[in-house]
């Protein structure tokens, strides 16, 4: 039996990130295809409870130490490298997120093994693996084969649905003693919360953006509710700012801010070049506009040709439903 497939579980501020389940679903498939075991590895402090929820894995290795309370790449990579040297997994899946990003680089360096980055999917092919990756900012897709194993794979969010990674099964949980380095040259002193009130739309991962199609400031509540549900903020086209619905700091476009959120929902925005210049690099763009010929649909990934005043309330309900 080949060595185990590892999924590095991501915990931050007391909870597991959704992406962990996505990786579990992906890891499950790889492990099954090559007849290997799927192991989730969790570093943290007081995380036994979290380990229990990783039921899709055959085994959860968890290292509990105050040193692992916060995700610091230097600390985690040393501990994981030591553990991996001992346990010899063949595939290590690491999520590409702000929390885990440092591991994506440090782990293969410490282990001296290949890295496969920006991966959307991995399949077992024969004895080996084949990864599908998005490179050049998503402009190209490659199929790539690691020449040797073990291999560390950086996996983009969305590779699988998180739901598929959840299981009610109780996994086998094994506490492991990962070495927590005394000193590694890097110390996390604390977190700085984003300043309330003064929202920087360039820093938001989700933006719900409103244009003239919103028709009035009175309807802003709709956008705000949706933004809050999605954990983002409300931004606007220039006319919406001109009309005083929102402050100038929320203006997206050529003469406002250039934004690159993970999700940009354009409500009642026509998609003038000056606006598009500011948001075209968003990872996912969903546009709602009554006019099916509006140029915004040329840059959006998904389009909804409906009246936003009717559609958004329905969407809000659905998102709420989904969340509960």
């Amino acid at each position: 039996m080949p060595g185990a497939v590892w999924v590095i579980a991501e915990q931050w501020r007391g909870g597991l990130s959704e992406v962990t389940y996505e990786l579990l679903a992906l890891g499950r498939q790889i492990a099954d295809d090559r007849g290997a075991a799927l192991e989730a590895v969790l570093l943290g402090s007081g995380v036994v409870g979290l380990a229990e929820s990783l039921g899709l894995a055959d085994r959860v290795l968890y290292a509990d130490s105050p040193a692992f309370a916060e995700p610091v790449g230097e600390v985690g990579s040393r501990a994981l490298a030591a553990l991996a040297t001992e346990r010899k997994p063949t595939v290590v899946l690491v999520p590409i997120t702000n929390v885990s990003w440092d591991l994506v680089g440090l782990l293969p360096a410490r282990l001296g093994v290949p890295l496969v980055n920006f991966c959307m999917d991995v399949a077992a092919v024969g004895d080996g693996l084949e990864a599908r990756c998005l490179v050049f900012g998503g402009k190209m897709e490659v199929r790539a084969v690691p020449e040797s194993e073990p291999v560390v794979i950086g996996v983009l969010p969305g590779a699988r649905r998180a739901d598929a990674g959840r299981s009610t099964k109780r996994p086998e949980v094994e506490p492991v003693a990962a070495p927590a380095p005394e000193t590694c040259g890097v110390r996390l002193l604390g977190y700085e919360e984003p300043e309330a009130g003064d929202i920087d739309i360039t820093q938001q991962e989700v933006l719900v953006s409103v244009g003239r199609g919103l028709q009035g400031q009175a309807n802003l509540d709709l956008a705000e509710e949706l933004a809050e549900l999605l954990g983002g903020a409300v931004s606007a086209s220039r006319p919406a700012v001109d009309m005083g619905w929102l402050p100038m700091t929320r203006q997206v476009g050529k003469s406002g801010m250039l934004v690159k959120p993970k999700l940009y929902i354009a409500l009642g925005i026509s998609g003038a070049p000056e606006h598009v210049e500011g948001m075209k690099d968003a990872a996912l763009i969903v546009a709602v506009n009554t006019d099916p010929g509006a140029p915004i649909f040329n840059v959006a990934h998904y389009g909804v040709a409906e009246d936003l005043l009717e559609f958004v309330p329905v969407l809000i309900d659905k998102v709420k439903e989904h969340k509960s």
């Binding site: 220039r238 100038m248 203006q251 050529k254 003469s255 406002g256």
Partner: peptide
């Protein structure tokens, strides 16, 4: 070059 610049508060 004003066409290229940010709006002024």
């Amino acid at each position: 070059g004003r066409i290229w610049m940010e709006d002024v508060p």
